[in-house]
């Protein structure tokens, strides 16, 4: 007997629409806040939505074959999958015994998807971007893993909803000194996750034109924009769930997400870009040391 769970399907669609919309608004907030820090007025908040609609309205979309088309779709799919495992307020649609690990790695898959598509375009700029992207990913695994290990060791569970429940019972993660260190490490890695300034080596605007995304235009680019929006939402939600005690309703979650986003924007707007070798060295130095201390403290 196959029973169709209509409630789950409707909830999934609702969460997806909400996440996409809010993700675009987050992108708008990012642009607006950066503009204000640079003493500009900046675009309206809904500008990324307009951009995406305009890209969708393009007549031609150059394709370089199946993998090129598949890359963005794969990235978007992975982001959506990650989103569905994160407890968004009181909806957690899917759950496994170790969904922390699932989400942590599903959030990295989109980068691989973009790179998969970018490599098949055969553009040397994309190739350089992909090289840099993969090296950044390799470099940030170590502190990222250490931060997660510290968290898991402290709470003693791999399940996100249990972590949320424990935080609501015993206080947020950041109130624990060891996890505060983990938060610092996670926040540094987070910057690279979002592709924001000190670690925006992958796209590197004005350095290697657009990195992996040089060849993407039209509908492909619209798909990548949407993917970025969903990913922004998923990552900020993941951050809030892990360290800021989750949320019991969407508004509370939204406030926490915006706080996280603003910290990322501040860091992004005041620090210049690392070169790729500096980034790798940096990741294996300070965040790793702090991460090890955090892990040792939680033992």
């Amino acid at each position: 007997m196959i029973e169709v769970n209509w409630k789950l399907i409707l909830e999934t669609i609702g969460i997806l629409i909400y996440a996409t919309f809010m993700g675009f608004i987050f992108m708008g907030i990012e642009r607006k806040a950066m503009a204000r820090i640079q003493r500009r007025v900046g675009p309206p908040l809904w500008q990324p939505i307009i951009d995406t609609l305009k890209l969708l309205g393009k007549k031609e979309s150059v394709s370089h074959g199946f993998i090129y088309d598949f890359g963005p779709v794969f990235a978007l799919g992975a982001t959506i999958a990650a989103l569905l495992f994160i407890p968004i307020a009181n909806f957690q649609l899917f759950s496994t015994n170790a969904d922390l690990i699932v989400v942590a790695y599903l959030l990295e898959v989109p980068m691989l998807g973009i790179m998969l598509g970018a490599m098949s375009s055969g553009n040397p700029y994309s190739a350089v971007g992909v090289q840099r992207g993969l090296l950044t990913m390799v470099a940030m695994q170590l502190p990222y893993g250490l931060a997660l290990i510290a968290l898991i060791q402290h709470w003693g569970t791999f399940k996100l909803n249990e972590i949320v429940a424990l935080q609501q019972a015993h206080g947020w993660s950041i109130t624990v000194p060891a996890l505060l260190l983990a938060l610092i490490v996670f926040d540094i890695v987070f910057q690279a996750f979002l592709g924001l300034e000190p670690f925006d080596i992958i796209t590197a605007p004005a350095e290697i034109s657009m990195g992996p995304m040089v060849e993407y235009g039209g509908k492909h680019a619209a798909l990548l924009f949407t993917q970025h929006a969903v990913q922004l939402f998923a990552e900020t939600a993941f951050f809030a769930v892990l360290f800021l005690g989750g949320a019991s309703n969407l508004l509370e979650l939204l406030i926490k997400q915006i706080v996280v986003l603003f910290i990322a924007i501040f860091v992004a707007s005041i620090y210049p870009r690392f070169t790729i070798d500096q980034a790798a060295k940096f990741f294996w130095k300070w965040p790793t040391i702090i991460g090890i201390i955090a892990v040792l403290l939680t033992m």
Partner: peptide, 17 residues
Amino acid sequence: KPWMGIKYLFKKPVTIK
């Protein structure tokens, strides 16, 4: 010191609309 740059967030933009 780079964090000093954040102060402009609360100042009026110098743009001419």
